[in-house]
Design a protein around this nucleic acid. Structure first.
Length: 479
DNA sequence: GGCGGAATTA
DNA sequence: TAATTCCGCC
């Protein structure tokens, strides 16, 4: 982009001590390539940036549900966005159109009844930022599909703290402890990127309402030496006002040097148990996932998640009820089964798990008006029918996964290639545990015993995993 | 305000 | 591909 107005805005790295760890994406999240099809920052990244910065609390802020934010000053947000994109004529109408554009992608949805209020679907964000996560966790999510097999499966509810906790057992339940894994904090480079769960502000506990992500509310280990040595700068694409940091040369903003290929790094970024899928010597544990490396403890920020509602609150119960399109946003459910499981389990080619369409009510307003369109892609309230369906869901969206290969086949191959026969690690589909719980999240249990703080509701997942292992053991014994 | 279609842009 | 722009409808 050769837009001056952008470059003027972009280059102010955050001051670590001032940084509010609400939402920060791994460096590669800002990598143009990480935004398929996009050469520049995407709107939702931008929104996250604004939400993350205290100076914009008066313009846009977290509010209400986890992942929910309100645009307090639509015109200002539009103006800022226009500045960022060099679109001087940007206005809220256009901006909101772009936001609506995310509905089908399920990155966002509208909070009905609340003006200027939207809600992030973080499961999607997870997928976007952790393209291999779904693969790595496939054993669980595959099982998840079994669980969801007969029921309408909401495709993507927000990732809950519990879900993340399951995915990242070491993730502390509160925002104080450093627990996220970080990759080497050494020199920037292919190994310099890191994965931060504070990327997801709704995954911790917090007050139902907040002017900023609850993650900002709790104690947070300010690390004076935290200077993004790997080149990651959550504000890079859009730093607005912090000027006391050295500007990066214009060309460095998206320098590939700082933005390693996520495909190469994301798997190795995966925390246990995913890291265990890596070849020996490359596990997260070995890289010091718990304590960080190079003396730099991983940091975690705990996001605003009105924590009290782990699994069932929200949208989980709505899935598949066949609500109308106007309700689609609120139907956003089943994080694991949907968001993560979607990419994962389905991707593995599990498929065949038809989930009813939930019956009608899927026409868009215009469809109702015009009486047309059958919604083949069934975008929002996606019913997971099979892998192809799942990926078809993504057909209209940026390819967040690995290339164009539909489904997991491609992913698996890739993973295998990358990790040296990972395929052998992944359990055969036939070994998947039988449905144990209809609850999508329950299948996402951690491989390791869940933290004591985890709600009992997650316990069953453990037994599921155990059963899975037993099955595997038996199979091995038989063979 | 909010929605989505359609054409267009970069 | 990810918007941007315009628009008519609700």
């Amino acid at each position: 982009m050769d837009c001056n107005c952008v470059s003027d805005l972009l280059l102010t790295p955050p001051v670590p001590t001032l940084w509010t760890p609400g939402i920060a994406f791994p460096d590669w999240a800002y990598k143009p390539e990480s935004s398929p099809g996009s050469r520049q920052i995407q709107l939702w990244h931008f929104i996250l940036e604004l939400l993350q910065k205290e100076e914009y609390q008066g313009v846009i802020a977290w509010q209400g549900d986890y992942g929910e934010f309100v645009i307090k000053d639509p015109d200002e947000v539009a103006r800022l966005w226009g500045i960022r994109k060099c679109k001087p004529h940007m206005n809220y109408d256009k901006l909101s159109r772009a936001l609506r554009y995310y509905y089908n992608k399920r990155i966002l949805h509208k909070t009905k009844g609340k003006r200027f209020t939207y809600k992030f679907n973080f499961s999607k964000v997870v997928l976007v930022n952790y393209p291999l996560l779904d693969m790595a966790s496939s054993p669980f999510l595959l099982a998840q599909n079994h669980f969801n097999g007969g029921a309408a499966t909401p495709d993507c509810s927000p990732v809950t703290p519990e879900a993340l906790q399951s995915l990242f057992p070491r993730l502390p339940e509160s925002g104080r402890g450093p627990s996220l894994f970080e990759r080497s904090a050494g020199a920037p480079g292919p190994d310099g990127d890191k994965l931060r769960l504070d990327t997801f502000p709704f995954l911790g506990s917090g007050a139902p309402c907040y002017s900023k992500p609850p993650s900002l509310l709790g104690p947070y280990p300010r690390n004076p030496s935290f200077d993004y040595p790997w080149g990651f700068n959550p504000y890079l694409p859009g730093a607005f006002s912090l000027n006391n940091c050295p500007k990066l040369p214009p060309g460095s903003l998206y320098s590939s040097h700082f933005y390693p290929n996520p495909l190469q790094s994301s798997l190795s970024q995966l925390p246990h148990p995913f890291s265990s899928l890596l070849p020996p010597g490359d596990t997260g544990a070995e890289r010091g996932q718990t304590g960080g490396t190079n003396g730099q403890p991983p940091r975690l920020c705990i996001p605003p998640y009105p924590g009290s509602v782990p699994l069932g609150r929200t949208e989980l119960g709505n899935g598949g009820t066949g609500v109308g399109d106007r309700e689609r946003g609120e139907t956003n459910t089943g994080v694991i089964g949907g968001g993560l499981g979607l990419g994962l389990g389905l991707g593995l080619g599990l498929g065949g798990l038809s989930v009813g369409s939930g019956g009608g009510g899927r026409q868009s307003p215009s469809e109702r008006r015009k009486g047309v369109k059958q919604d083949p892609e069934s975008d929002s309230e996606l019913e997971i029918t099979d892998l192809s369906d799942c990926s078809s869901e993504n057909e209209n969206e940026p390819d967040f996964s690995l290339g164009k290969e539909p489904g997991l086949g491609g992913r698996s191959h890739l993973l295998e290639a990358k990790s040296g026969g990972l395929g052998g690690v992944l359990p055969p589909l036939s070994s998947l545990p039988p449905p144990v719980s209809p609850h999508p999240l329950k299948s996402l249990g951690p491989l390791t015993p869940p933290p004591s703080s985890l709600p009992p509701s997650l316990s069953p997942s453990l037994s599921m995993v155990d059963r899975h292992r037993e099955t595997e053991t038996l199979k091995l014994a038989h063979s």
